[in-house]
Design a protein around this nucleic acid. Structure first.
Length: 425
RNA sequence: CGGGGUGUAGUAUACCGGUAGUACGUGUCCUUUGGGAGGAUAAAGACUGGGUUCAAUUCCCAGCACCCCGACCA
């Protein structure tokens, strides 16, 4: 992509009201545009990042047996009345059609998927099933905040599993834990992410959250440094005796390994996995006939990852005073080619040739061919944060100056070496 | 939803009960080109509604928006 053709521009100036680091950097660099609090447009650069995150998630969930569908965002009121959540789900957006019929904007999709599953699951032979989608969710957050971390509209991967018994649910639950670790590893935040015990609702003692440590986080977690398990503060203060963790943590002992050293950190929930049991299958009468001919309730699990929140979290945890530092796996482009002497025909022709050669080698490259001063281009490149910077100028002669965004030093390499370096990761 | 803060151009700000100014940024042209260059020139602004007043961007009230803290987060 030639930057002279790019729809968006970067900006030095942004309102001082934009306190959130991820929003500030992403807006300045032209990845997103804020329409209103918690409502964002994904611009060309931002959409590329979002799509890469989406593909990573899709690959890992498919690998775990997930079958992708796409459910509607517009939900009839009746579905939500069946589970009682038309009244009890505070953040549900409700609206009326011209026919006075009432609808909800999808905040989560148990109310849609469970009745759908009823049409296709009736025997133990139809179980287990793993169904997911990647779709926009709407929640009427009273306080949208922290840029992409808490929006009123956000993109979510929501997976729902259907099982004949609890044992099968438990084993799939562990499988998804592994899939989630792979996703967060590929997205570059595994080292800062902790499996965290959180409140489990009615069916199980705990749910598990994947919490990434960042000062922009909303939750406080107690991390056992020995076994890397964490506990969300929310269940420490819960008076319900169903949580034995409460006592053990307040005694200063990790519930998993009995270690006594905890680190207290702010963190953001990037993933959450739940055992639902029959909580949602019951109201819709989702049952199956087992191999003894007996009717039993289908039991379920649900598993979510917020894609845009994940993107915001990566920015929060990967930046410096000059801008974003994208991990290679989700960077909008693999390389940022900078032409620093755009007025000199020979150098421009050389840069054009390098650009075309990179494209032919299937390398995703953003080419800053604009007629702007070197300082602007270098600053923009740091702000946008593509992991590899390639500079062509009067100084570089027959070579290319190569610099990783996360490092200070640069080196001169030939085009062939550069292509090999990028292609081989 | 409770509490706090802020609303003047894209951004940062100035002045003011009587024609709203500056800087940066932006557009165009020329000259420049290794860490946000120089000149010329142009466009662009008082959140909304009500009240007081001869006159309101300015004072008063209400609403709205945004930001922050807390609560909530299925």
């Amino acid at each position: 992509m030639r930057q002279s053709d790019l729809f968006t521009k970067t900006t030095k100036t942004i309102s001082a009201e934009e306190k959130s680091v991820n929003a500030s950097l992403l807006i300045r660099a032209g990845f997103v545009d804020k329409l209103a609090a918690g409502i964002y447009t994904f611009l060309p650069l931002g959409l590329r990042v979002l799509n890469k995150i989406e593909n990573i998630i899709r690959e890992e969930i498919n690998e775990a047996g997930g079958q992708e569908i796409l459910m509607p965002a517009l939900h009839p009121k009746e579905n939500w009345q069946k589970t009682g959540r038309w009244e009890s789900f505070d953040a549900l957006f409700k609206l009326k059609g011209g026919d006075k019929k009432e609808y909800a904007l999808g905040a989560t999709h148990e109310e849609i998927l469970v009745p759908l599953a009823k049409k296709h699951i009736s025997s133990y032979k139809d179980l287990p099933r793993y169904i997911y989608q990647i779709q926009t969710k709407f929640r009427d957050e009273v306080r949208a905040k922290s840029g992409l971390l808490r929006g009123r509209q956000f993109l979510m991967k929501d997976l729902y599993s259907f099982h004949a018994d609890e044992k099968d649910l438990n084993s799939y639950y562990e499988k998804i834990k592994d899939a989630y670790w792979k996703i967060f590893e590929r997205a570059g935040i595994k080292d800062k992410t902790y499996l965290t015990l959180a409140s489990g609702g009615t069916f199980s003692k705990y749910s598990h959250e994947f919490q990434t440590v960042t000062s922009a986080g909303e939750d406080t977690i107690y991390i056992c440094e020995k076994c890397r398990l964490a506990v969300n503060k929310e269940i420490l203060k819960d008076e319900n005796p169903v949580y034995p963790v409460r006592n053990r943590i307040s005694n200063g002992v990790c519930p998993e390994c009995q270690n006594e050293k905890f680190k207290v950190e702010k963190a953001i929930e990037v993933g959450n996995i739940f055992k639902l049991g029959a909580k949602y299958s019951a109201p819709f009468g989702l049952k199956f006939i087992d191999n003894a001919g007996k009717e039993r309730a289908v039991i379920m699990g649900c598993y979510g990852i917020g894609l845009d929140r994940l993107m915001g979290t990566v920015v929060e945890t990967n930046n410096d005073e000059n801008g974003i530092i994208w991990p290679k796996s989700i960077a909008p482009y693999q390389a940022h080619l900078l032409l620093l002497a755009p007025q000199e025909r020979e150098i421009r022709e050389k840069a054009d040739l390098i650009y075309n050669t990179l494209l032919k080698s299937d390398i995703e490259v953003l080419y800053d061919d604009r007629n702007l001063s070197a300082g602007i281009k270098l600053k923009d490149s740091d702000l946008i944060g593509i992991p590899l910077r390639l500079v062509i100028s009067g100084k570089t002669r027959e070579n290319i100056e190569v610099k990783e965004r996360k490092r200070k030093e640069a080196k001169l390499l030939g085009l062939g070496e550069v292509i090999e370096m990028i292609t081989n990761g």
